[in-house]
């Protein structure tokens, strides 16, 4: 197991992402932030918290569950959905999707389908804490990247959150035997 980000660096990265968002979105009057359930919401919470508390910005912030849009339903998965909570219109807004790890790109593909069912946004952008390079199954890229990681398929990048696991950190786990993704 190798630590890629410790708790101190972890928070520096989140603050950098928040500032990059300000650079492109200004006062966020035309932008909305959508965290992808379950773990993208944790990153979105941190970003929104920083922007609201330290930058006094007013944000529209929602949570999106993508279970019903996945491409692996009926492929041996019975998935129980999380809550979706988007109580504002995304019509003609800039949507900032937030997820913790960008890996195959399939989650983001599902999220794009899901978000378009809420209206027609002007633009959709993607924020990710970890970008696992060279492992995409689909042509999907992030606009804001916390850290780029090159890892083998047999390795797993795991993000720990203080809210859930008691500590903020990102680690690389070796030889994780995962169910093969179809």
């Amino acid at each position: 197991m190798k630590t890629l980000l410790d708790s101190k660096k972890f928070n520096v990265v989140i603050q950098r992402l928040a500032h990059q968002l300000i650079e492109n979105h200004g006062d966020f009057s035309q932008s909305v932030i959508i965290g992808i359930q379950p773990r993208g919401v944790l990153l979105a919470n941190r970003l929104v918290d920083y922007l609201q508390v330290n930058r006094s910005l007013k944000l529209k912030y929602g949570k999106l569950d993508i279970t019903f849009y996945r491409d692996d339903f009926n492929k041996g998965n019975q998935l129980i959905p999380d809550q979706t909570d988007i109580n504002f219109s995304i019509e003609a807004k800039k949507v900032i999707l937030v997820d913790d790890v960008l890996y195959t790109g399939r989650t983001i593909r599902s999220a794009l389908d899901a978000i378009l069912d809420f209206g027609r946004p002007d633009k959709v952008e993607l924020v990710t804490l970890i970008d696992r390079r060279y492992s995409r199954h689909l042509p999907i890229q992030a606009d804001y990247i916390g850290m780029t990681v090159d890892a083998l398929i047999s390795e797993k990048v795991k993000v720990y959150w203080a809210e859930n696991e008691g500590e903020d950190k990102v680690v690389l786990l070796n030889n994780v035997i995962e169910k093969p993704k179809k």
Partner: peptide, 8 residues
């Protein structure tokens, strides 16, 4: 939702 449908 505006589009009350999912592709599941």
């Amino acid at each position: 939702r505006p589009i009350k449908k999912v592709p599941t």
